[in-house]
Computed example of a mutant assay.
Amino acid sequence: MAAMAEEHEIGDDELLDVADNPTQAASLHKALRTLANNSNVGPELQEMAKGVLSGRIGMKDVIESDRYMHAITGRLGEIHDAAEHLSPEDRRRSEERAEKMVREQEEAESGSAKRDDRRK
Results as ranks from 00 to 15, higher is better:
Gly74Cys: 08
Ala49Arg: 04
Glu6Cys: 12
Met59Ala: 03
Asn38Met: 06
Arg93Leu: 14
Ala25Tyr: 08
Ala5Phe: 15
Asn40Gln: 11
Asn37Lys: 14
Arg56Asn: 08
Asp117Glu: 12
Glu9Trp: 15
Lys120Tyr: 10
Ala108Arg: 10
Arg75Trp: 11
Glu96Arg: 08
Met59Pro: 00
Ala71Arg: 00
Ile79His: 06
His8Leu: 14
Arg92Met: 10
Glu106Trp: 02
Arg92Cys: 06
Ala71Glu: 04
Leu76Lys: 12
Thr73Arg: 06
His29Gln: 09
Arg33Thr: 04
Gly74Phe: 08
Leu15Asn: 01
Ser110Asn: 07
Glu14Leu: 14
Ile72Phe: 00
Asn40Cys: 04
Gly58Asn: 02
Asp81Phe: 10
Asp13Lys: 15
Met69Pro: 03
Leu35Asp: 04
Ala83Pro: 01
Tyr68Trp: 08
Ala71His: 00
Asn40Lys: 13
Gly11Phe: 11
Glu106Asn: 10
Arg91Tyr: 14
Asp61Lys: 05
Gly55Val: 07
Asp66Gly: 00
Leu32Phe: 09
Glu78Pro: 01
Lys30His: 12
Gly11Arg: 11
Ser65Pro: 04
Ala26Gln: 13
Ser87Thr: 15
Ala31Phe: 10
Leu15Phe: 13
Glu106Pro: 00
Ala26Met: 11
Ala49Ile: 10
Arg119His: 11
Pro43Thr: 11
Arg92Leu: 14
Ala31Val: 10
Arg119Glu: 07
Glu99Asp: 05
Glu78Thr: 09
Leu53Glu: 03
Asn37Gly: 08
Leu76Val: 09
Gly11Leu: 14
Arg92His: 14
Val102Asp: 02
Arg93Thr: 13
Val52Leu: 02
Asp90Lys: 13
Asp66His: 02
Leu28Tyr: 05
Ala5Met: 13
Ala83Val: 14
Ala82Leu: 15
Thr23Tyr: 02
Arg93Ile: 07
Glu99Thr: 03
Asp61His: 02
Glu78Val: 08
Met48Glu: 00
Gly55Leu: 04
Leu28Val: 12
Met48Lys: 00
Arg118Phe: 12
Lys50Pro: 03
Lys100Arg: 14
Arg97His: 04
Arg75Thr: 10
Ser39Thr: 11
Leu32Cys: 10
Met4Ile: 09
